[in-house]
Write a protein that binds this DNA or RNA. Structure first.
Lengths: 162, 162
DNA sequence: CGCGATGGGTTGATGTGTCAACCCAAGCGG
DNA sequence: CCGCTTGGGTTGACACATCAACCCATCGCG
C-alpha cells in the first residue's frame, strides 16, 4: 500500500520473516521445555494458570473459554483429556452445569513449573528486548489487536466473541 | 517475586500477555483468511511460497525441510496431503529421491492469494508498527533467535538442526 | 568384499485443534 | 400449554503435528 502495492519491500520482508522465525523458535522452545521437564503442554499450562489464579481454583467452562479465547469445543475436548490425566475435575454444583476444579495434582504441577517457565520467558524474550523495547512491544501488540478487532467488527463475525 | 528472581513484574506480565494475545489474534486472522478465501492453510501457503520462489518450481524434500524448519515427518505427511489435493506432485528424477514439483493448480493458488495475504500482513501488522518500530522488531527477533540458539547449542540437542 | 554408520524419506500411533452438528434446559411469545 | 430461540456444553469426523520406529541406498573403512 505505502510504497508499491500491497507487497512488502525487501526490508519489510526481512523483518517479517525474522519475526515469524522468532515466534516459531520461542514457541517451540517454551513448549518443549514445559513438556520435557514437567509433562505439560502449553495448553495445559494455560488452563492451569487460569484456574489457579481464580478464587477457589474453580471456574465455569465458559469463563475459561472467555479468558483463554478458545473455542468451546476445543476447550471441552481438552478438559476431558486433562480430567483423564487427573489435572482437573468436573464437579457438579447446584446449577446444572459442572464447574471445573483444579486438583491437588494440577495445583502441584503448575506451582512447580511456573517459576521455571517464567524464568525462560524472561531470559529468552523479556531481557533480550530490554525494558523500553519490551514496553513498546506491549503497546504495539495492543494496537495490532485493536486494529484487527476493529476490522472484524465491521465485516466479519469474529467467532472469538461468544 | 516481582523484579527479583525469575518472575515477571506487573508491567512485564502485561506486555507479555499483550504479546501472546496479539500473536494468537494475528495468527488466527491470517489463517482464517487464507482458509476461507482460498482454501489454503498456512502450511500449504508456506510450502507453495518456497516452491514458487525456487528455480523451476521444484525442490528436494530436504531443501523444503531446511527452509521451512519443519521436521521431516511433518513435511512428508503434509506433502502427501498436498499431492492428494493436486497442489504439488512428487516426480521421480534421475537420482533415487523424488523431487517436489509445484503443479499448475498450486501455482495458480499461490499467485492468487499471495497479494491478498501480503496486504493483510501490511495492514494489520507492518503498518501498525510503522517503519522504525517494525525495523526494531526485526532486529530484536534476530537477537531472540540467536539467544535461544546459543543456549541450545550448549546443552540441548535442538532437533531443528537436521 | 563385508558391514556398520549416515542421511533422506516414509509410516503408524497418538495427541491435539477445528468444524459442524447436536443436546438440552431456561426464557419467552403466543 | 406449545413451540421457538438462545446459550452452555458435548460429540464425531476430520485435518494436522509429533514422536519413534523403520526402510534403504550410499559411503567409509576394516
Amino acid at each position: 500500500m505505502s510504497s508499491n502495492g500491497p507487497w512488502l519491500d525487501d526490508a519489510e520482508q526481512k523483518s517479517w520473516r525474522s519475526y515469524l522465525l522468532m515466534k516459531r523458535t520461542l514457541e517451540t522452545h517454551l513448549e518443549r521445555h514445559l513438556q520435557r521437564e514437567f509433562g505439560l503442554s502449553g495448553s495445559d499450562f494455560e488452563i492451569l494458570v487460569n484456574l489457579s489464579e481464580s478464587e477457589a481454583g474453580r471456574m465455569r467452562a465458559f469463563e475459561l473459554s472467555r479468558s483463554t479465547q478458545w473455542e468451546k469445543s476445543r476447550l471441552s475436548h481438552h478438559l476431558t483429556r486433562m480430567e483423564k490425566r487427573g489435572l482437573i475435575r468436573k464437579e457438579a454444583c447446584d446449577s446444572r452445569y459442572p464447574e471445573i476444579v483444579i486438583t491437588e495434582e494440577g495445583l502441584a504441577a503448575i506451582k512447580e513449573c511456573a517459576p521455571a517457565h517464567a524464568a525462560r520467558v524472561r531470559e529468552f524474550f523479556v531481557d533480550v528486548f530490554g525494558p523500553e523495547r519490551f514496553a513498546i512491544l506491549g503497546e504495539v501488540s495492543d494496537e495490532v489487536v485493536g486494529t484487527i478487532g476493529k476490522h472484524c467488527e465491521d465485516d466479519c463475525p469474529l467467532e472469538a466473541r461468544s
